[in-house]
């Protein structure tokens, strides 16, 4: 069986994943529009992405826990191909979710398609960072439940502090200097740049998100067997 397809199948076997991918994001579209930016649902969707990617990476953690990764490493396939196929599968699933969410937002808000393409690109970079972050985060824990428990608290605080859960302009300006070190900050920053037509701001957001992704991927894939 193709490992990439296997990873997708493994994920969509989980009812919670189907719920996360197909249903929860759409509820965000019914949050009222924001006068000073995109509708709040567009930013809040970042929170869904953080949790969705975390839950989608669960099989990699469980394979580590059960020792299946050791068996895979002992095969000619090796851990690099195993990991890359799995991460690519998660990125595919999350891309499907992003596309469905943006189609939904077009239907409900009826905004310009051009903006949606830019938002799609930003969500895509953010998802890569989130998948890498989940991989790195999970490498610190021995069980998924403990990992998820701690992650829930940390992710909620990160999203709150970095302008995903509440609009960025509501945060004190003095805080921005600090929260820009949070990887989650760069989604609302990028969304604001898209809204204001600030191309440089958009590029910086993409660059920082991908930089974080590389760091997290290196940390997450270095864990000993």
């Amino acid at each position: 069986m193709n490992l990439y397809l296997f990873a997708i199948r493994e994920d969509i076997r989980q009812p919670l994943n189907i719920l996360l991918i197909l249903l929860i994001p759409f509820s965000l579209l019914f949050i009222p529009a924001n006068a000073d930016g995109f509708p709040m649902g567009i930013s809040l969707y970042g929170l869904v992405l953080v949790y969705s990617t975390f839950l989608l990476t669960r099989p990699v953690v469980e394979d580590r826990m059960k020792g299946i990764v050791v068996r895979i490493a002992a095969s000619p396939l090796g851990t690099f191909r195993y990991l890359s196929n799995h991460l690519l599968a998660y990125l595919t699933l999350i891309t499907v979710q992003i596309v469905l969410f943006l189609i939904g937002s077009l239907v409900i808000y009826g905004d310009a398609v051009f903006d949606r393409l830019l938002i799609f690109a930003l969500y895509f970079s953010f998802s890569i960072m989130c998948i890498a972050f989940s991989l790195a985060w999970n490498s610190l824990f021995r069980t998924f439940n403990l990992s998820f428990g701690v992650f829930s608290g940390v992710a909620s605080i990160m999203c709150l502090a970095s302008g995903i859960s509440i609009p960025l302009f509501l945060l004190p300006r003095s805080l921005i200097g600090y929260i820009m070190f949070l990887p989650t900050y760069w989604l609302p920053h990028g969304l604001l740049a898209i809204y204001e037509g600030d191309s440089a701001g958009m590029l910086v957001a993409h660059a920082v998100l991908l930089f974080y992704a590389v760091i997290f991927l290196l940390v997450g894939s270095k864990r000993r067997l």
């Binding site: 069986m1 193709n2 490992l3 296997f6 493994e10 076997r13 059960k66 020792g67 299946i68 050791v70 068996r71 895979i72 002992a74 095969s75 000619p76 396939l77």
Partner: peptide, 26 residues
């Protein structure tokens, strides 16, 4: 390599497990 831990997928059938681990060897 027969691992000390049970390194099989519990949500899959025996046939799927055998075929999956066989597929790792091309």
């Amino acid at each position: 390599y027969v691992t000390q831990e049970l390194t099989i997928y519990e949500e899959m059938t025996a046939k799927e497990n055998l075929e999956f681990f066989g597929s790792l060897y091309g």
